Amino acid sequence: MAQFTVVQEVDAPAEAVWATLVDWPRHGDWAPLTVVRRLPGPSEGAGAGFVARTGVGPLAFNDPMTVTAWQPPKDNRVARCEVVKSGRVVHGRAWFTVTPLPGDRCRVVWFEDVTVSPRALTRYAAPLLSVAGRLGFATTLRALARDVERATPATP
C-alpha cells in the first residue's frame, strides 16, 4: 500500500477549516483536475458518500468514498473524519484531523493508505505513489488554507 501524511497549519479557527474540509464538492476547487459530487443519502456524518473524479477525458477515474467516522470540532477537541475508498482504481482509507491551536489557528493532518489497481502497480510503485500523493495533497491543503484564511476575518 502507498501511505503518506501531510500537515498544514491554517490561520483560521478549527470550526471554519472543518466546515470547508467537509464541504466535499469544494475539494475540486483545490485538487487539480478533480470534480467532487455527493452521493444520495446523508451529506455529512458517518454514511455520507461522495465521488471524486480525477483526470482528463479517458484518463479520468472515479474515487468513491464513504465516511466511516465523524467527530466535528467541539469544546476545543481534535476533529476527525475517516473515509473508506472503494473505487476500481483507488481503494483503501484516508482520514484527516483538525487540531485547534492558540490564536484562532489550527493544524490539519491528512493521511492516506491506498492501493492503486492493478495492485502490482502499487507493489512496485508504492514509494513513487507516496511521494506523488504527499506532494499533491500538500499543494491541495495549501490552497485550502489560503481560501479559508481569506474567507475568515481575523479576530482582534
Rank of each mutant, 00 (worst) to 15 (best):
T68C: 08
V131A: 12
L135T: 13
N76K: 12
E112R: 04
G28V: 03
T97R: 00
A12H: 01
R134P: 05
A16I: 09
T66Y: 04
A14V: 02
L33H: 11
N62A: 15
A14I: 01
V17W: 00
T54P: 03
V7H: 12
M65D: 07
S130A: 15
A125S: 13
V51F: 04
G41D: 06
D63C: 07
L141V: 08
G55L: 03
V67I: 06
R107T: 05
V7P: 04
N76E: 15
D75G: 12
H27G: 08
Y124N: 10
R77G: 11
H27N: 10
S86Y: 08
L141Q: 01
K74E: 15
A69G: 11
D113Q: 14
F111Q: 14
P153I: 09
V108A: 04
A48W: 00
V10R: 00
T99D: 11
R150P: 05
A138L: 12
V78W: 03
D113M: 08
D23W: 02
T20V: 08
A14P: 01
E9V: 09
P58M: 09
A12V: 05
A132V: 15
N62V: 09
W70H: 06
R105V: 07
P102F: 08
S43P: 11
T139S: 12
A52C: 11
F111G: 06
R107C: 06
G45K: 02
T20G: 06
F96P: 00
P13T: 04
G57N: 07
D23L: 05
P32I: 13
T97A: 03
R146G: 07
V35R: 15
P100Y: 02
D29A: 10
P40E: 06
K85R: 13
D104C: 13
R53V: 14
W110R: 05
V10M: 03
W18G: 00
A120Q: 12
M65H: 10
V84I: 13
W110E: 02
R77A: 12
R53H: 11
P64A: 03
V6Q: 01
G136K: 02
F50D: 00
C81V: 15
V84C: 07
A14K: 01
D113K: 12
T122H: 05
V84H: 10
V108Q: 00
A79K: 00
P153W: 08
L129N: 01
V114Y: 02
V7R: 14
V84W: 06
T99I: 04
R119Y: 15
E9Q: 14
A31R: 10
G103C: 09
W95A: 09
N76M: 12
Q8H: 09
G57R: 06
A48T: 02
L144K: 01
